[in-house]
Amino acid sequence: MKRKNSVLSFAGVVFCLLLLLLFNKTFDSYKMRIFNLCAIYITLGLSLNLVNGFTGLFSLGHAGFMAVGAYTCALLTLSPANKEMNFFLQPILPFLANTEWPFFPALLVSGLCAAIIGFLIAAPVLRLKDDYLAIATLGFSEIIRVIFTNTQRLTNGALGLKGLPNYTNVWWSWGVAALTIVFMIRLMRGSYGKALKSIREDEIAAEAMGIDVFRHKVISFTISSFFAGIGGALLGHLLGTIDPLMFRFLLTFNILLIVVLGGIGSITGTVIAAIVVTVLMEVLRVLDSSIDFGLFVMKGIPGLRMVIFSALLMAVILFYQRGLMGTNEFSWDSLGKRLRRIKKRGPK
C-alpha cells in the first residue's frame, strides 16, 4: 500500500512537471503572468496559514513582510544605472548604489531580512492574543509601509522602484512554491508541527505539557515572515515595479481570503484555493467590461467582478464553514476511498 502510494506520488510529480513544461511552451505572456501569480500566492498562502491556521495566531501583518522582501530584493538586484534613473529626486544611499547581485542570493537575503523584521516584531506582539494580536500585527505592517514611503534615499519613497529585472519565471515561482509545500508538509508531519498544532488547540495545556509556547510562536512567526519575504520578492520581480501602496492591507486580505477559503490549517486547501482565487480574479474580469448578448448590450460596471467574487465567497463559507478542506489533507488513500464510494453508488 505504502509503496503503491509513493509510486502514485511520483507519477503525480512527473505529471505536474510535464504540465509546467507544456504551459511554459503554450501560454502567452498574459496567461503566463497569471500562472506565475498562482504559484506566488501558494507560497504566500502557505506562509500565512502556518501562523493563522497551524499555530492559531490571528496575524494580519503579511503585506508588511512582503514589502520588506520585495524592497530588499529589488534594491539588491537593480543595476547601478537603473538605480540612478529611479532615484532622481534624491540619490540612493551610497552603500546600495553599486550592488548588483544575482537573483538567488538576493532572494535568500530578502527572505532573511523579512524573517529578522518578523522576529523583532514577534517579541512584543506575540504577548497579545486573538483580535488584539490581529490589530497589532496590522499596525506593524502599516508602520513598515509608512516607513518605506518616507525613507526617500533608501526606498525612493512614494515613487516606488521601476524596471526590476523580470527574473521571476515558471521555474522560480513554481520551484519556490514546491519547496514551500514540501517544507510545510514535512514540518507538520514532524514533532514541531504537532507542537504548533497543540498550541492552536489549547495553549494552557500545551504549556503544561512542557512546550515553550512563546518560543514556538516566535519560531512559527519568523518562518512565516521568511516565506512572506520571498513571496514578496518574487511578486516584485514578476510585476517589474513596486511601490509602497501595493503593500496595503488589501494584499493581506487577498492572502487571508485564500487561507480561509481553502481551510484554516490545511496545506492542500491553501494550494487549491490559491489557484482558484487567482484564476477567478482574472476570469471574472469579463464582467467589468460591456458584454454583447446579441439582442442587447450590457454596459460594463467596473467592480462587478468583486461583487460576484464576494457572493461566491459567501456561498463557500455558508456551505463549508471551515473552508473547502477544513483541516484535512490530500492523501491517495482518502482519494481511493472516495472513488470507491462513487463507484458503489454508480448508475442506478
Binding site: G190, Y192, I211
Partner: peptide, 26 residues
C-alpha cells in the same frame, strides 16, 4: 488537544525532551 488524535495527544507530550531544532525536523 481536541482535533488531534489520541496518538498525537500523547506524542506531543514527548516534544519537550526533543533535542533537535526545527530545521533538522524538516
Amino acid at each position: 488537544f481536541k482535533e488531534l488524535s489520541v496518538l498525537e495527544n500523547v506524542f506531543v507530550a514527548n516534544h519537550l525532551r526533543l533535542k533537535s531544532n526545527i530545521f533538522s525536523s524538516v
